[in-house]
Amino acid sequence: MPEQSNDYRVVVFGAGGVGKSSLVLRFVKGTFRESYIPTIEDTYRQVISCDKSICTLQITDTTGSHQFPAMQRLSISKGHAFILVYSVTSRQSLEELKPIYEQICQIKGDVESIPIMLVGNKSDESQNREVDSSDGEAMAKKWKCAFMETSAKMNHNVKELFQELLNLEKRRTVSLQIDGKKSKQQKRKEKLKGKCVVM
């Protein structure tokens, strides 16, 4: 088991139903589901490389509602990087990110050095689009963070999202690619491939 201090922690925030879990599950397990199961708090682990050695990427998928303010504060203070998700089909969902962004600023202080990615998900739903991609960009500019549109359903930009986020980390070099020797976990993962084990 890698040391806990060695973990790189990413936290995903956003209103309920925008596709946070779908993005995470698409990235971690490569799957997508139409049905909606509300999230309370889930954390997935993946082996990545960090400063030329192996470390664990911890992705925490949170609940949409503000039911647990204490838990939210805790995950912000423990997080290294943040993904703020809205759905391009709901302007409201973009609005709802504001208090979360403000809380991150408040707890982390200097947000410019912290990797934050604003994500407009469900880009496949062109019929129901409410938020233009230029609106997202403008917001990102205001928040001094990066921006991307994704579709968990079509698997569009999902892996890129996570890679870009890690690229924003300037204090260490984190990358999804693992060079050189594979970790034990990675091997086990490959062995069990197709068996759908969350690793």
Binding site: M1, T39, I40, E41, D42, T43, Y44, R45, Q185, V197, V198, M199
Partner: peptide, 11 residues
């Protein structure tokens, strides 16, 4: 928890 210490919270 999962073997790699990923976890899901269920209700």
């Amino acid at each position: 928890y999962m073997p790699d210490h990923s976890y899901v919270t269920i209700r």
